[in-house]
Design a protein around this nucleic acid. Structure first.
Lengths: 156, 156
DNA sequence: GCGAGTTCATTGGTCGGCCAATGAACTCGC
DNA sequence: GCGAGTTCATTGGCCGACCAATGAACTCGC
């Protein structure tokens, strides 16, 4: 039973498994894998992004953070609340502009930085295992193109 | 006047911008884009996967569905509850084995099938816009490899 | 036939993500 | 100086997705 028996016309372009489908599946696996590796650090999948940004940038406004991470402001608010509760970030009202919240990584959080970096390196190797340099380069390049394609969606 | 380097090109290369990061961003954009296109159909991002499976397979057990979609059973339960409430699926206890739930697409749901197919085709083109055949082939191939890499994560 | 184990679905809890709407604070025009 | 508009963060509602634990139903061993 190697070939599908009931293959009615279906789509005009190749198989029923488009790239989109694979991409979705891969991304879920990737996220899951990352979350698992991240577990010992106490962070959840997605939070490490935020922390890495803070570690790198220092003190940033919340709105900047949302823009950098390309996330909805409400998402950032919730994530920060949890991270604050966990003692990973510190939030403060900007005295100059009382609307904005200034966020920075807590002193203790810096202990996690190398761990997170290692996790990411491991995940990266895990993901790209068995791919030669050429493939990696091609993948990065194509991914970048696709990102541009999809980014131009919501121009307004 | 805080020191703020030109932010716009910071995402390009140089710093610790691994593939993982881009992949995560791309997948979010992809999902978002899909959700937007899917909106007119009344389905949410992720549900179309499930419906496509049902349309193709007919009546399936819920556990089978979870395995096929590679989702947690609890996720499937919730999704199905909502889809059932929306009239898109029909659930029934298997009389032979009263543990299992048999799920199938509702008759009305079939009206959505071509719409969803079109949305997916559009998303596919959108995603891969500007890529030549060679790049598409390479991307699909590499993605497939990566999927295999990440799938072998949870064996132990 | 009855108890141990397994399979299956559900529930409850948590998190990431979105949108829409609200309200607080600042900016600008007049 | 005051009102209109904008920016910023938060809230509430919703969905996808995970894990852990529970309970119902079946299977198998004895």
């Amino acid at each position: 039973m190697t070939s599908e028996p009931t293959r009615t016309e279906a789509t005009e372009a190749g198989d029923d498994g488009p790239v989109s489908q694979t991409l979705a599946r891969v991304s879920r696996l990737h996220r899951l894998s990352g979350g698992r590796l991240l577990r010992p650090t106490g962070l959840c999948s997605g939070q490490e992004f935020l922390m890495m940004t803070l570690w790198k940038e220092g003190s940033v406004r919340q709105s900047e953070l949302a823009k950098t991470l390309d996330l909805d402001p409400s998402t950032v608010t919730l994530m920060l609340r949890r991270l604050e509760q966990g003692g990973h970030v510190v939030r403060m009202r900007d005295p100059q502009d009382r609307r904005v919240m200034l966020v920075r990584a807590s002193a203790e959080s810096y202990a996690l930085r190398p761990e997170v970096a290692q996790v990411w390196a491991r995940l990266e190797e895990y993901t790209l295992d068995g791919l030669d340099d050429e493939e990696r380069e091609a993948f990065a390049r194509i991914l970048s193109k696709i990102e541009k394609n999809l980014s131009s969606t919501d121009d307004g």
